[in-house]
Design a protein around this nucleic acid. Structure first.
Length: 577
DNA sequence: TATAACCAGATCCAACCG
DNA sequence: CGGTTGGATCTGGTTATA
């Protein structure tokens, strides 16, 4: 159909940063506004280390942050000098003043006074506050608000690691959004997502570290009340990520990028250094929003998303998936040993663990004989289980996930990739490369109110149709969809899905993204009256950490197709604005 | 410094086919 | 019998984080 004409991409043309200015946009502008209620310097890794360094010397958070702001993070000597000066002039070198500040903020946020008793300066309470200061400051410098940080530390305890704390904040943020969404829904009691709240909390609060002495605060007040206080300053940024990459936060896009046509780009979060910066530069300086899909399903999937969609009033796809693997796969629950404390799976990859590995695990465990194997055996088995995402399917018996379990966890309909001539191996491959539908749908949910009559979609690198499925599950009508996908098997999957879901719109299947010409794009735009959304995730083969052979970065054989994505998005943007 | 995680790719080998 | 196909197995480096 589109056999004539080539995009004739010259890669070197794209390598030049001079070409980046589009629509008069300056490069590398920061459209995000980070909400920080306590003063803070920019949140770089260096900055974090510096704060750690001075906190370790006994200075308070506020003093350190002020000193860094005044002198800059490169001027360590001056910072130290200022801190020493402050320490000799302030009457309270133990940090009591900062403790008061901290407590004041804490009270104003949660409304609880956890310091009812009159503790002296040398009590455990002092140690608590100091350590709390330090932990909170790290969170603040990761971009979270001071309030969120304090509440997270209160609830998770000081023994909690950063991952738990950020998980807490993000889970609370998501929950608050969900609650907000549900307020406007009729018949709330039947909503599956309500059940998720309790489970989610159990997961985050009851999973581990119960033995802390600082539980008093959370015992005094139900968790739910504290959760209400969490602000939505950093929506769904599930993890801290590479240096120089920015959290997905509330933002204000320049006028020139706001409104339709919308575009949405996805790729692996943990790409080689500099890749996301380069992608961001091409995509008009918009900074990536990093999300871990473990907030939407029972497996992790760390991905970066660059888009010009509104970020307000997002709503989750319903029903919400179980976030705990034993609930997502209830048949495994009875076989899960106590010493395997996994609650979510690692990233679903394109290949699975070998039968020989599961057999070795079974043999090793049986040889132990005892109900609880010795620690070294536990350790070995756990490492293998994590590496290959094994689940427990019998006594001493682990197994890789089945393709239909992949489908469920990724949010696709059952048997979406089954049949039609596709092999089991190819199903794993296709699913391992796919979107996590619930995550993407969460971002796309804002389109529902904008396009009540349906949308026209240009879907690039469609794969097995994650974008199409997400939009359909959101209840957004698909008027015209141009789906570009090189794999015939994948095209067939989308085609079958389109038929099965009785779509009323038109599906146009295109094979090669490199042969999509300007003429094609203009033809479609004329025919449909324009695209409302251009969506796709370009190949990650040369970016993925799993690739040990050709991790060549954005210029790699497959991943360089990103430039095709950019080319096409840019043409649509220019044609329709 | 040690550890864990990662939308993968190359190779081997058995089954299949003309 | 030679070639092809596809499934199972084997392969280890980069990166972030504690």
């Amino acid at each position: 159909m589109y056999s004539e004409g080539s995009s004739s991409r010259n890669q070197h043309d794209w390598d030049s940063d001079d070409d980046l200015e589009v629509f008069g946009m300056p490069q590398q502008t920061n459209q995000h506004t980070v909400s920080m209620e306590s003063g803070s310097a920019c949140s770089t890794a260096k900055n974090r280390n510096l704060i750690h360094h001075f906190l370790g010397m006994g200075f308070s958070v506020q003093e350190v942050i002020k000193a860094i702001e005044k002198h800059g993070e490169d001027n360590e000597e001056n910072i130290l000098e200022r801190l020493l000066t402050l320490a000799t002039t302030i009457e309270d070198p133990t940090g009591e003043a900062s403790r008061e500040q901290c407590d004041s903020a804490k009270k104003s946020v949660s409304g609880i006074d956890i310091d009812n008793d009159d503790a002296g300066p040398e009590t455990e309470e002092d140690a608590f506050t100091s350590e709390k200061d330090e932990t909170s400051s790290i969170l603040v410098n990761m971009g979270y608000s001071f309030k969120d940080a304090l509440i997270a530390v209160d609830n998770c305890g000081l023994g909690a690691d950063l991952g738990e704390l950020t998980d807490f904040i993000c889970a609370a943020q998501l929950e608050k959004e969900i609650k907000s969404h549900l307020k406007h829904r009729p018949n709330r009691k039947h909503d599956a997502s309500l059940h998720m709240h309790k489970r989610s909390r159990d997961h985050y609060y009851n999973g581990k570290r119960k033995s802390r002495m600082y539980c008093r605060a959370s015992q005094k007040k139900p968790l739910e009340m504290d959760m209400e206080e969490i602000e939505l300053s950093i929506p769904t940024n599930g993890f801290s990520i590479a240096k120089g990459i920015y959290p997905g936060v509330a933002r204000k896009l320049p006028d020139k990028l706001e409104g339709p046509p919308y575009f949405y780009y996805e790729n692996v979060a943990l790409a080689p250094i500099g890749v996301w910066k380069k992608i961001s530069n091409f995509l008009y300086g918009i900074q990536p929003e990093f999300v871990d899909s473990k907030f939407f399903c029972a497996s992790t999937r760390k991905r970066g998303y660059i888009h010009n969609l509104p970020t307000e009033n997002r709503s989750p796809l319903l029903p919400i998936q179980p976030l705990i693997v034993q609930e997502a796969l209830p048949n495994t629950r009875k076989w899960w040993p106590k010493w395997d404390q996994r609650r979510h799976l690692n990233c679903l990859l394109t290949s699975i663990g070998a039968a020989t590995v599961t057999e070795k695990i079974r043999r090793d465990l049986e040889e132990c004989g005892a109900e609880t194997p010795p620690p070294d055996v536990q350790d070995t088995v756990l490492k293998l289980c994590k590496k290959w995402n094994f689940v427990w399917v019998g006594k001493n018996k682990v197994a890789p996930l089945e393709p239909d379990e992949y489908e469920m966890l990724l949010g696709f309909p059952k048997d979406h990739t089954r049949g039609g001539g596709i092999s089991r191996t190819d199903r794993y491959k296709a699913l391992g490369n796919a979107f996590q539908v619930d995550t993407v749908a969460y971002h796309l949910s804002v389109l529902k109110d904008l396009y009540p009559n349906g949308i026209n979609v240009l879907s690039l690198f469609s794969g097995i149709g994650g974008a199409e499925v997400a939009l359909h599950r959101l209840g957004i009508k698909l008027n015209n969809v141009v789906s570009v996908e090189v794999s015939e098997v994948n095209r067939n999957i989308i085609h079958c899905w389109w038929e099965q879901t009785e779509q009323r719109g038109n599906l146009f299947e295109v094979e090669d993204v490199q042969r999509v010409t300007s003429e094609h794009i203009m033809e479609w735009i004329t025919r449909f009256g324009g695209f409302d959304l251009v969506i796709g995730g370009s190949p990650c083969n040369n970016l993925s950490g799993s690739n040990r052979v050709s991790r060549d970065g954005l210029e790699g054989e497959h991943s360089s197709l990103f430039y095709e994505y950019y080319r096409i998005v840019n043409e649509v943007m220019q044609a329709q604005r």
